[in-house]
Design a binder for these strands. Structure first.
Lengths: 192, 192, 192, 192
DNA sequence: AATGAATGAGTATTCATTCAT
DNA sequence: GATGAATGAATACTCATTCAT
């Protein structure tokens, strides 16, 4: 139903609106205005406000996961894998700040029906990273830090970005990815 | 205006409600019900929904900053300072999960009048940590990572906590503080 | 019930408030603030908002009617009577602008129970003036103008005052009374 | 926005409601019920309660002024002009009692933004009448009565009408216009 | 593919009023 | 005499959503 390009435009406008006003704080009218169409027109493309949020989150996770799958193809070294994932995550983040802000802040906003698939994607995403950390585990003999905790500390460094990141002031996403990788790997693995 | 104890009760109830539904998603009716009082009764203590949020954020920041001031009194070593701040932050976080979730997620919700003092407190908080990182600077000769970025990566590790932390599964706040400090210091300072 | 002086103070404050915001537009809180007392304190003197309005209107009508009774004592000539009444009305009006504005604008605001006595006073007031016009009737043989209408045209000239009168710009109440009398008598009686 | 006929219907219903309960005393629900539509439906046509009042007042003033402009076209004699204006005013008044009651009673209800254009129309209306009285000035050598005051006494006779006029009892608007003109002109000009 | 018109349910907030003290 | 605390009912207004066209 509906021209996919138009839908993508709407999705992008909606992400901006949700990012700046919050999902609950934004009205469908705000979204329609941002997408430069009538209120009723929106409902041709989306059946509900929730569905728009779902589409934003689903699209973002899918793109991220697909990107990682491609980037990791053929790579064996877990450190290199981690690097790729951090780079990919932050590159996508800085290129899609609105969507990622919505992803980070509105992760609980969707109720069961629509929320379940998104939660599943999120779990897959966590599992992907967790798997890589497990592979790194040999270098981490004393288990000072639980892997389950480490995963979320890493996500915290990256996802908190939406609250402060300013490319001009803070450098490129690639620089940022270096910083995150450096701190995390060196911190976790206690090697010089 | 209004008994301060009753106000503290309301604040706590409101923090729970805002934490679970989001500030915009929660209604004043929800807050009143959680505080077990009438809708109109709430307005005897708070003049607006915004004012409740302000009180939560203001109180949390003030308590955090006061706690740090006390904990840092007489301490010279910046590593030790950092440890105190991380411990204090996470201890408060885990003891006041609802408030901290609200702090983390609704940092932009307050408009000018009420938002300004909170933003100022937030800036003071960042400056406090930044100051400590600056003192650590000697060990950090190559400036691989900008201090301004490092501060926010640290905050990210800590503040993201509201999205995943489960004491039972993930250990005590003190353990978590150790993990954060370990990763951050070792990662940042590149020492064994 | 209640010290009558304090009650008079409250009445005066309330008249100011009702005059500036309208009876419906003003809140009991506004009145309490203007009277410099607590909301609940007001209810010691008045049992309801309506009762305050009643008191204002009742007091004003009673004072006006008493004043006229005194001023007309012993006077025979209807033209002189009319002069006295117009003078009295406008003098009271300009000395009690707030009350008279409330009288003029909120004449229908009071429901049955409290409204009835005020309506009766109003009718008495109209009858007083009508009686005087009837006495003038000899000079008015052709009945170009119904007395019932004339009374209200006269009231119109006087009561509309609250919308425009400014002593500085428009002169004293006595001057105004002269103008009203002149126009009305000469206009009505068609004499040079 | 919105069909202008439907808007006119709503305006008329609203005028009735505001006339009978007062602007502050009437609720938007009352207006919606009178217009036989839903509360929210009203907001498709008007963005606020104030805007409805504005529309009533603006429409009434505009119609009155346009009517006078047409009626006065080509007339030279100021007495004739005055007659036309009084007739037009009272004819409109009696044909639109509700609107005119609202105009008369709620002249201060609109705040700045919406109030300003209405106040300007009111000023134009006063100026129109004042201009005619100035032209009459030659017959009025002793200046017993200030023109500025005379204008408002005339308005008083006419606008007070909403408090008492009953066509059956008091005669047609045309008769009333005669009475007003007679009293005012004869009274002002002191001619037989 | 798109929209103008409409609505029921909900929003934050204010109201006149009460009552224990 | 006076007030702090509280409330049920109402306020103006906005919401996500629908439907005829």
């Amino acid at each position: 139903m509906g021209n996919p390009d138009r839908k993508a435009e709407i999705r992008a406008s909606a992400a901006e609106v949700f990012a700046s006003k919050g999902f609950d704080g934004a009205s469908i009218r705000d979204v329609a205005k941002a997408a430069d169409m009538s209120l009723a027109g929106l409902y041709y493309y989306y059946r509900s406000k929730d569905e728009i949020l779902f589409d934003i989150q689903n699209e973002a996770f899918t793109t991220l996961l697909d990107g990682h799958a491609e980037a990791l193809a053929g790579i064996k070294d877990p450190e290199e894998k981690l690097q790729k994932v951090i780079e990919g995550h932050l590159a996508f983040f800085s290129a899609n700040l609105a969507s990622m802000k919505v992803m980070s802040r509105e992760s609980e906003a969707l109720p069961g029906e629509l929320g379940a698939p998104v939660r599943e994607l999120r779990r897959r995403y966590v599992r992907l990273l967790r798997g890589i950390l497990d592979e790194l585990g040999v270098d981490h003999p004393l288990h000072e830090i639980k892997t389950g905790v480490a995963v979320f500390l890493l996500f915290g460094m990256m996802n908190w970005m939406y609250t402060w990141y300013d490319e001009e002031r803070d450098g490129s996403a690639a620089d940022l990815a270096d910083a995150v990788r450096l701190i995390f790997l060196r911190g976790l693995l206690r090697r010089p």
